[in-house]
């Protein structure tokens, strides 16, 4: 019998090692796996490379992981947030490296990484500073820039419902990077509001098939980043 459920977020991230590449789902607060990130802060792994669209807000979730100086590098499309100084402070003091990537390129790099495609050509960023030093090629009279696929050791993802086989359904715009990060990571960890028996999710509506997901953990009432920030919470 297949059973990918683990009992706690702490157990789900226990083997994240120093220097690991960790993809973190979410677009702003939607889909940010806060409980898994907080468990990773408690776990203590250092010198991480984090792949995520943003860098968190306030001093909870991803911003708290950065604040704890566990992250050496971020691969990110939009690290600025109106209500967080964590990333700007680290960046300006040279304590964190940034690989800035256009958002669609970031998504496709992750998808490609998970799909066995080592590199691809995109029209985005041609002629801009973000294409400097990268190989370009002309196809049908138009110039494209080569971008590399991205893989990770771990992915931390937030879903709505998961089953014991690792099939996942997401919630609204919290889906965002989850499905592609699950594909691109050696160990994809999904926190879900409910974990159910195989067969309880209609196969027609499964978004992430279980083959891409290694661990599921139930977090029945996940925190929302904006509510924690509004309440002045700083983690830990």
């Amino acid at each position: 019998m297949i059973n990918k459920q683990v009992s706690t977020p702490a157990e789900a991230v226990a083997d994240v090692f120093d220097g690991a590449t960790v993809m973190v789902g979410g677009f702003g607060e939607a889909g940010s796996p806060i409980e898994l990130i907080h468990a990773l802060i408690d776990q203590g792994a250092r010198r991480l490379t984090v792949v995520s669209n943003n860098c968190g807000s306030g001093e909870v979730g991803l911003a708290a992981l950065l604040k704890a100086e566990r992250v050496a590098k971020v691969i990110c499309s939009f690290p600025r947030t109106a209500n967080s100084t964590v990333f700007p402070d680290l960046y300006r003091s040279g304590k964190i490296e940034l690989e800035l990537t256009p958002q669609g390129t970031l998504a496709e790099r992750i998808r490609a990484g998970g799909a066995g495609i080592p590199a691809f050509f995109t029209p985005a960023a041609v002629g801009t500073p973000l294409a400097e030093g990268k190989e370009t090629r002309e196809f049908d009279g138009k110039t494209y820039v080569m971008e590399r696929g991205l893989k990770a050791d771990f992915a931390l993802i937030k879903g709505r419902t998961a089953d014991l086989h690792g099939n996942v359904v997401y919630n609204k715009t919290a889906r965002n990077f989850g499905p592609i990060m699950a594909m691109a990571a050696k160990v994809a960890v999904v926190q879900a509001e409910s974990v159910v028996e195989p067969g309880e999710i209609d196969p027609e509506v499964v978004v992430s098939p279980g083959i891409f997901v290694n661990r599921v953990v139930e977090v029945a009432h996940p925190a929302h980043e904006s509510e924690l920030v509004a309440a002045g919470v700083c983690y830990p």
């Binding site: 499309s77 939009f78 690290p79 600025r80 990333f87 700007p88 960046y91 300006r92 940034l98 800035l100 990537t101 256009p102 958002q103 669609g104 390129t105 995109t122 029209p123 985005a124 960023a125 041609v126 801009t128 500073p129 973000l130």
Partner: peptide, 19 residues
């Protein structure tokens, strides 16, 4: 603005204008 100390952030703009 390309100014030193500015935090660069691009989002989806480059993909949008390209496609």
């Amino acid at each position: 603005t390309g100014e030193p100390g500015a935090i660069p952030a691009v989002g989806g703009a480059m993909d949008l204008v390209a496609g």
